[in-house]
Design a binder for these strands. Sequence first.
DNA 1: CCGTTTACTGTATAAAAATACAGTTAACGG
DNA 2: CCGTTAACTGTATTTTTATACAGTAAACGG
Lengths: 202, 202
Amino acid sequence: MEALTRRQQQILAWIQEQIAKQGLPPTRAELQEAFRFRSPNAAESHLRTLARKGYLQLQEGRARGIRLMSELAAEMGLPVVGRVPAGQPILAESQQEGRLPIDAQLFPGADYLLRVQGMSMRDAGILDGDLLAVQRGSEAHNGQVVVARVDGEVTVKRWRKEGHQVFLLPENPDFSPIVVDLRKQDLRLEGLVVGLLRLGGL
Amino acid sequence: MEALTRRQQQILAWIQEQIAKQGLPPTRAELQEAFRFRSPNAAESHLRTLARKGYLQLQEGRARGIRLMSELAAEMGLPVVGRVPAGQPILAESQQEGRLPIDAQLFPGADYLLRVQGMSMRDAGILDGDLLAVQRGSEAHNGQVVVARVDGEVTVKRWRKEGHQVFLLPENPDFSPIVVDLRKQDLRLEGLVVGLLRLGGL
DNA sequence: CCGTTTACTGTATAAAAATACAGTTAACGG
DNA sequence: CCGTTAACTGTATTTTTATACAGTAAACGG
């Protein structure tokens, strides 16, 4: 996204503040008043610039027809990803079950929701069918619950790295740890689990 | 707050929907269009009525100057309830930790979020610190996970009723079932667990 | 150096939006 | 049964609001 000048940042920030405080986007005249412009066109052209740079959308002919893009993005919620076939990228359109209207602030940083299959993380309170909020990333600390891909298969496990070996630890004594030798096997860290959602009762 | 007629409820609901979907309160003309009124005054007088009854505020002379009352605004999302002292009602203001911006559609029917204390439901995937979405109600089927109050204490357990006895079953062998004889002891069913939310990684 | 962008002033005007006034019909409540 | 409220129709008239057009001055970028 194209960068903003200091003035443009001030104006965008003020618009965001107005929406938060007043519950309404401002008019050109209100923007003019707030910044002591002597011409409504100063407001108009700032809005056009912000729209051109992709920070907001203007709805023509509508009073207060200003829509922040951040607002639009937040409204889209998070995609829900189901079974991921070996080799397929996680966010492939074909794997998406849909979207859930989740506020971006709820799981900060989350990129998608992954439906859990199996009971290998049972003792960490992660059950079959649960939705995990996943933040994409390729680095993890030992002990974090991660989404990883070993030989094309996507799995959720606790991460432990020691030298050239990675241990993907289940949290269920019925399952065995997966040991990956990075010199011999392919391992890809897809992301970190940053939250969990279970819909419906038990 | 004064009650609304069915028509007024429809109109208020539509206004709320518009604000959520469009990011803007509607104009009189948009309300007229949506409900196929042949006069803008139909919209105007409905708005006045809703304002008079305290459901919204009209800012005169401002385009789209409709503001849902703070109570309604505050009621967006769900309240988060923490430790509930014996005897206190669950939704007592003093016990609320805050609110989380959760879309009503996410956990249909949920009235509040209850923070779990302890590990008695561990094997049902409910861990200490988790948030349970609770639907208030005083009836449960055997096998459902419920929020109940025994002798003033709030607890989360699996429900089983047999005649005049209720078994509140933990899901952790380290804990013992609570057996309540309805003829001798006080038991109140506070609600059903309809979802679970775990914020942050593990 | 010269074209482009930023950041405005100043003046107009058409369209959108709020809002007043005058009615009608049906239901509701005492 | 009669006053009141709800739920509208129909017409007008301001105010707000968006937005076009014509400029200016300074900064920026190659």
